[in-house]
Write a protein that binds this DNA or RNA. Structure first.
Lengths: 228, 228
DNA sequence: CGAAAAGCAAGAGCACTGCTCTCGTTGTGG
DNA sequence: CCACAACGAGAGCAGTGCTCTTGCTTTTCG
């Protein structure tokens, strides 16, 4: 039994080692991850890697899930240190941005354009919503504390109904516009970071990009109804 | 001389044909464009394609420039039909979104995560700013017509200075915050479309995505100071 | 007008990729 | 102890980007 545990542990270690090397390759060479190159770095035959990951896509999926978890973890920790909802909002935003700047290629993997031919499997859905849920919880807290004012821009028919449904399902007791504000805020976050990382800000915002991001997050917070 | 023109014309036609087939491959197979597959579709040797494009990256660059121009053209035309600044703002937004929905892979090429190993050359910079400049012109028009109010969220030090500089360079006579509103609006646009195209809205906004986008564009306009 | 030069297409070839299959080896549970 | 499952390595297939050489056509110029 201890032997079996040893075998399983070796396998787990090997799996982790492959992922680590793959992450390193991702950081240097970009998204076209070469399984053979990873195998070379590990001084093993490329075919041996297939004992641990059935395909390159499966390895990518593992990295994606890890990335979702890592950025979610960072955001949650940062938000936990905020005193007011607005402080949590901003802290979470900066935490996500910092993580993205540290791991640009992993960010591209999870929030960039889909990898050609890669279809995200179902088990990436749950970790993907971690940051979104954090923002939602922050706004919900603000709402219950009376620190959230309904924004002036109203939603149109179809989308408004959808928000009401979502609210009823995931946040009972919360009006639909809070869910709408959450989604808007989340995509503001992604958009601001992606535009910075993917080069859309080149020749427009070349200096104080943290300032730009702060400005965007404050605007998003304001648009969401956060005051303070 | 006419013979020389004929030769040049044949070459131009061939170049265009390669791009057309490449675009078709892009639309079906995604971003990992295979030069050999394109050559096969054209019933020519893969090496022959290199007479027209020195590398796969150069072909991608040509497609990128075309895409920038195409989406810019559509946005400008749509904005031209708008009566008020806000109408132009919304029309341009929907035009860009419509184009993106029609050409998702080309959108990913220009506004998605950078293609691995591909570095955008300098000659893509000018066409890339076309939509940004359109938004800027729209806001400038609104400003001069007294239909733009300075937003309450103020910019912080470093970023504010940068905006003032940008305004002095590109939009003399305009305050920095209008430039800031332009940039914010542009990345709002990109973010909203990308989040829809790249699947970030899955399981959040599955129904009325046009309504979602409209809501976002109105919010961005409001954040930029557009009234009406 | 004919020779030189330039443009072009094709094929072979190199190094690389993901992935599969087979073949020994090695460790494990009954 | 031994059958069996897990494992690593190697060969091999089909595909990729790209280069180089070879032959052919078209243009250009003396």
């Amino acid at each position: 039994m201890s032997a079996a545990n040893l075998r399983a542990r070796v396998r787990a270690e090997m799996t982790e080692e492959i992922k680590t090397v793959a992450r390193r390759h991702l950081a240097t060479d970009g998204a076209n991850l070469s399984l053979r190159a990873v195998a070379r770095d590990l001084a093993m035959a490329s075919s041996a890697v297939y004992r641990y990951f059935a395909s390159r896509d499966e390895l990518l999926t593992a990295l994606i899930i890890d990335a979702y978890d890592a950025v979610g973890e960072r955001a949650e920790q940062a938000a936990g240190r905020g005193a007011t909802p607005l402080a949590k909002w901003l802290a979470a935003g900066h935490a996500v941005r910092d993580w993205a700047l540290e791991h640009p290629h992993e960010w591209a993997l999870i929030y960039g354009s889909p990898v050609p031919g890669y279809q995200a499997p179902q088990n990436t859905v749950v970790p993907a919503t971690r940051v979104l849920l954090l923002l939602g919880a922050t706004l919900a807290e603000a709402y219950h504390a009376g620190q959230l004012t309904e924004p002036a821009t109203t939603t149109t028919g179809g989308y408004a109904d959808e928000l009401t449904e979502l609210a009823a399902t995931y946040y009972p007791g919360l009006p639909g516009w809070v869910v709408g504000a959450t989604i808007s805020g989340f995509f503001h976050l992604c958009g601001a970071i992606s535009s910075e990382l993917f080069g859309q800000l080149n020749h427009s915002v070349d200096g104080d990009r943290r300032g730009f991001f702060e400005f965007q997050m404050r605007g998003a917070g304001r648009l969401a109804g956060l005051v303070g």
